[in-house]
Design a binder for these strands. Structure first.
Length: 256
DNA sequence: ATGGTCGGGAGCCGA
């Protein structure tokens, strides 16, 4: 089965892209970020017609996450971390066909040292605490989404220019390392060791054409799932289409 | 050449 994450940067604009990509890639589970739609406006009937059930946690203008599942109805939904009073819709956890799936739209953080940066680190710490509990209850755990963190220098087109900048700073990478330490691995790196593999490219400066990107969209899987890991990839095709999202889908393939 | 591009929504903020 195929599990995917894709920051669509407005589902309103990207609905045709999503349709075309679902038909081509045939994923079983899809985590979407930056839907930018309040729940009343989520196109669930249109997506149901494509063969996917969906759950979502959205808001107007900003953020918004959704999970699409081809066979099983997502169950035991979590959209808010206990004790975390946050109006920003950035997290959606559900059980789908025996897997616990946590879809994250991690805070961007704007600039190192800013208020939003402090919020990012606090958000990550709280979410990590919650996911540690999820991992204890659900051995088959997948945590995926837009992490807004490039894990290592080989995930960055120009590590010197990005050194200690937002998405690459040591505290952000340390926060990601802590999340991994609850018992998760970055599945892309279980299969690929090369640099130059990215999932996001700025709209400016023809960054995609020049492959000036970062790998910030990740699929993490628990160690219990290790024997089932069959492949990981980033699908560059939708980034080449007209009026694309600035992110490409990242995928994990699991054996039954 | 000290900017550049998107999306949302009507200013400029967020990424």
């Amino acid at each position: 089965m195929k599990i995917a994450t894709w920051n669509v940067n407005s589902l309103n604009v990207r609905m045709p892209h999503l349709k075309q990509w679902l038909a081509a890639a045939q994923p079983d589970i899809v985590a979407l970020q930056e839907t930018k739609l309040e729940d009343a406006k989520f196109p669930d009937t249109e997506i149901a017609a494509l063969g996917y059930r969906c759950v979502f946690s959205g808001q107007k203008t900003y953020n918004g996450v959704a999970l699409l599942a081809r066979h099983d109805m997502p169950e035991d939904i979590v959209t808010d971390i206990p004790g975390m009073d946050d109006p920003q819709r950035r997290i959606l956890i559900a059980t789908i066909g025996g897997l616990r799936i946590a879809n994250l739209y991690v805070v961007n953080g704007q600039a190192v040292g800013s208020e939003k940066y402090a919020y990012k680190l606090d958000w990550l710490a709280r979410v990590t605490d919650h996911l540690a509990g999820e991992a204890a209850r659900h051995p088959n755990l997948v945590v995926l989404g837009d992490f807004n963190i490039a894990p290592e220098d080989r995930d960055v087109h120009d590590p010197v220019a990005w050194k200690d900048q937002i998405l690459c700073s040591v505290p952000e990478r340390e926060a990601l390392r802590k999340l991994l330490s609850i018992g998760l691995s970055d599945t892309f790196r279980d299969f690929h060791q090369n640099d130059g593999a990215f999932s996001w490219w700025d709209y400016r400066q023809a960054a995609f054409r020049r492959n000036l990107g970062l790998r910030i969209d990740l699929v993490l899987a628990s160690h219990a799932l290790r024997p089932r890991l069959a492949g990981a990839s980033i699908d560059l095709e939708p980034r080449r289409w007209d009026r694309p999202s600035d992110h490409a889908p990242a995928l994990l393939e699991l054996n039954a």
